[in-house]
Amino acid sequence: MDCLMISSRVAAFVDGELESCECERFVLHIETCDPCTQIVIQIEAQRFSPLSADQRRSICERGAFWGEMDTELNGHLDALVVAPVGPWHRRRVGLPVPMVVAYAAAILLAVVWGVQQQERAQLAELASEHLGQQLEKERRLAAQPGVITPPVSGDGSYKVVTYAPERASF
């Protein structure tokens, strides 16, 4: 324990509030440190003199000392409406009607919005699945070796067609 620690524990030491191990370290320090010993001596010399319990009672139990307060607080106690304290599910909660309506509307909107979002998500999922299937089908077709279907009519030979646009047809 160092001097700084002594200065932050001196009140607890004087009041007997330090735990035994901390108290031992405190004593070990002040035995070897004069400035800290002086602080402890001066703090121990401080005398607080609060009124004793008897003096306090004598002041407060005279005549109608509390009469004025009793009268005032009785009025407030009479008007006091406090929900009985019980299990949480049995407690009544007094909320203003507009607040309840606003909360209900907010919850309803949130639910409707949530349902809409869910439907949209399902549609998007279906569309992406369909697109995926299409792509897969096309990929497979592209991967197969080229098979050229012969023309249905004619002599079985391919006909070369050349295209020459007529002049000035554009």
Partner: peptide, 27 residues
């Protein structure tokens, strides 16, 4: 000390150090 810690809403160590500083300042 424990009750003071509850009143001030601080830890017990803070009560000890604040009380010590207060007494040193008073001195």
């Amino acid at each position: 000390y424990a009750e003071i810690a509850e009143v001030l809403q601080v830890k017990l160590g803070t009560v000890m150090s604040r009380l010590s500083r207060a007494r040193m300042r008073l001195m």
